[in-house]
Computed example of a mutant assay.
Amino acid sequence: MKPRKTVVTGVAAVAAAIVPLAAAPASAASTAYNTRTSDLTASPNAGMDTSCATRSITLASGNYNWDVRIGGDVAAPRPIYLSAGTYTWKVCLQPQNGYYFQYTTLDKAGSEPAASSRFVGVPSSGTYTWGSSLDPKF
């Protein structure tokens, strides 16, 4: 019987240790990214294929800073309020003649999609990480 008591005591100790962890308040959300790494040319043309990265993301209600980025070049963030829910987050890089059209969308079922975009070039041909970020402000 004593071994059973020891097992029950061990289980109770583990449960007691887990309960405070589950009850701990959530910390502030961290910045989320939707990125892709691609070989880009400094001289794109409109006949080249568009590249996109898409992901599903569940967000809390609140204010966010939303940006688009390529390499170390980050556009000024767009402040945006988003309601809680699951969104389809898409970011694309569409070659034009001599530059790229970079755009990102957030689409939640039952809501109008939000969009942000810019025209951007790369200083030299090479491998770049590009995409978008959402930085919660709460």
Results as ranks from 00 to 15, higher is better:
Tyr64Arg: 03
Ser83Thr: 14
Gln94Cys: 00
Pro3Tyr: 09
Tyr33Ser: 01
Ala109Ile: 05
Pro20Ala: 11
Ile80Phe: 04
Arg118Thr: 07
Trp130Val: 00
Tyr81Gln: 06
Pro25Asn: 09
Tyr100Cys: 00
Ala115Cys: 06
Ile80Val: 14
Gln94Lys: 11
Ile80Asn: 02
Phe119Trp: 09
Thr50Cys: 03
Met1Thr: 15
Asp107Leu: 02
Asn63Phe: 13
Arg69Pro: 00
Ser61Lys: 13
Gly71Gln: 08
Asp39Pro: 01
Tyr64Cys: 00
Ala28Ser: 12
Val11Phe: 13
Gly85Lys: 03
Met48Asp: 10
Thr105Ser: 14
Thr6His: 13
Thr105Trp: 03
Pro79Arg: 12
Pro20Gly: 10
Pro20Arg: 12
Val11Arg: 04
Ser124Gln: 12
Asp135Val: 06
Ser27Ala: 15
Ala24Glu: 15
Gly62Glu: 11
Leu82Gln: 04
Cys92Arg: 09
Pro44Val: 01
Trp130Phe: 05
Tyr128Ile: 01
Asp107Met: 04
Arg78Asn: 09
Thr31Gln: 10
Gly71Ile: 09
Asp135Asn: 10
Pro44Ala: 11
Lys90Val: 02
Ala53Cys: 07
Gly72Thr: 15
Val19Asn: 04
Ala84His: 11
Pro25Met: 05
Leu82Tyr: 07
Thr104Cys: 02
Ala53Tyr: 10
Thr88Arg: 14
Asn63Gly: 06
Met1Tyr: 15
Tyr128Gly: 02
Thr86Met: 08
Arg55Asp: 14
Thr37Ala: 10
Arg118Lys: 12
Val68Gln: 03
Thr35Ser: 14
Tyr33Trp: 14
Phe101Val: 05
Gly131Glu: 09
Thr35Asp: 13
Ala17Lys: 05
Arg118His: 06
Ile57Phe: 04
Tyr64Lys: 02
Ala17Tyr: 06
Thr37Pro: 02
Ser83Ile: 06
Asn34Asp: 08
Ser117Trp: 11
Thr86Gln: 13
Ser56Lys: 10
Arg36Ser: 12
Val120Gln: 11
Ala13Glu: 02
Ser30Ala: 13
Thr58Tyr: 10
Thr88Gly: 08
Gly62His: 15
Ala109Val: 09
Pro95His: 08
Asn97Lys: 03
Val11Ala: 12
Ser43Ile: 02
Val7Lys: 11
Ala53Asp: 10
Phe119Ile: 05
Ala109Ser: 15
Ser56Phe: 13
Ala42Gly: 03
Ala53Phe: 11
Leu134Gly: 01
Ala75His: 12
Ser27Ile: 12
Ala53Lys: 14
Ser116Asn: 15
Lys108Cys: 01
Asp73Asn: 14
Val122Met: 09
Tyr87Trp: 07
Pro25Ser: 10
Asn34Arg: 01
Pro123Cys: 04
Gly121Tyr: 02
